Simulated assay, not measured.
Amino acid sequence: MENVMKPYVLILYYSRNGATQDMAMEIAQGVDEIHGVSSKIRTVPEISANTEATDPDIPNSGALYCTREELANCAGLALGSPTRYGNMAAAMKYFLDNTSDLWINGAMINKPASVFTSTGSMHGGQESTLLTMMVPLLHHGMVIAGLPYSEQALTQTVSGGTPYGASHLSSNDQLTDDEIVLCRAQGRRLGSLALKLIQEEPMLAANSG
């Protein structure tokens, strides 16, 4: 749930058929389990080969579109996209390609970030998608957080789940129990890291002065 009084972790996703959106909801639930930080769920507009952004300013259903201000002011970021030939979807890449002003201003430096994805097949490019999604976040100076093997579901899952971030095998109709556990664990870890980094900011500023 959103709370303007708290620092928030932005759960930013693109989803065509709902699987990545379902993951976003579970990650947000994990974030909201951490006292002192809240989740904010947002999506990005569709694009086409003939034009650039094609959707209306407000989507007909689901999450609102992310604004530049919401991205700049987040305390942490979970970035999600289905796999497109082993990479993120064009709509998400287009959104990130237009954040150079935040890169110039250093707005995202030292904020924690994680990534998540879904594929239609077991070997459909989950890991390469997660790894390539990290690259623009590293350029922004963000601190990447994966999923540690202390999460038991990571070693027992027979569907989605990687140390690089939560994933989902969308040939299953719904998220499996292990996939849900890992999504929520990723949200909790990201929320905890965001809160710790916020609390350490005054100390870092004092030391740098």
Results as ranks from 00 to 15, higher is better:
Cys66Lys: 03
Ser150Gln: 12
Leu71Ser: 01
Pro59Gln: 05
Leu77Thr: 09
Glu200Thr: 14
Ser159Asp: 15
Asp57Val: 14
Tyr65Glu: 03
Ala194Met: 02
Ser61Phe: 11
Thr129Arg: 00
Gly161Thr: 02
Thr51Pro: 00
Leu175Val: 04
Ser81Met: 00
Arg184Thr: 05
Met5Thr: 15
Leu197Lys: 07
Tyr164Gly: 08
Gly80Trp: 01
Arg68Trp: 08
Asn60Leu: 14
Asn73Glu: 10
Leu147Met: 00
Asn105Val: 08
Pro45Cys: 10
Ala205Leu: 15
Ser171Val: 07
Asn172His: 15
Ala89Phe: 01
Asn60Ser: 14
His140Tyr: 02
Gly80Cys: 04
Pro45Leu: 07
Lys111Gln: 08
Thr99His: 09
Thr99Cys: 10
Asn110Glu: 02
Lys93Cys: 05
Gly106Ala: 00
Val37Trp: 08
Ala205Phe: 10
Ile11Cys: 06
Leu138Pro: 02
Leu204Met: 12
Pro82Trp: 01
Met5Gln: 15
Ser39Cys: 08
Leu154Cys: 04
Thr132Ser: 15
Leu138Tyr: 08
Tyr65His: 09
Thr117Leu: 09
Ala78Pro: 00
Thr119Phe: 05
Ala91Glu: 09
Ser208His: 13
Pro45Gln: 10
Gly120Ser: 09
Met25Asn: 15
Ser171His: 09
Ile144Ser: 02
Asp101Tyr: 11
Val135Met: 12
Ile104Tyr: 12
Arg68Pro: 05
Val4Ile: 13
Ser150Phe: 11
Thr162Glu: 06
Gly30Pro: 06
Arg84Thr: 01
Asp57His: 11
Gln152Asp: 12
Ile144Val: 05
Val44Asp: 02
Val181Phe: 13
Leu204Val: 13
Leu64His: 11
Pro112His: 03
Gly106Lys: 03
Met1Phe: 13
Pro136Gln: 08
Glu151Lys: 09
His35Pro: 12
Arg188Asn: 10
Asp22Met: 13
Thr119Arg: 12
Ala53Thr: 14
His139Asp: 06
Gln29Val: 11
Ala63Leu: 03
Pro45Ile: 07
Cys183Arg: 02
Gly124Tyr: 00
Asn73Gln: 11
Ala206Tyr: 11
Asn207Ala: 15
Met88Trp: 04
Ser159Glu: 15
Gly80Pro: 04
Ser167Tyr: 01
Met1Pro: 12
His35Met: 14
Ala91Asn: 05
His139Ala: 08
Ala145Glu: 15
Asn3Lys: 02
Asn50Lys: 13
Asp55Thr: 12
Met133Gly: 07
Ile34Arg: 02
Thr129Tyr: 00
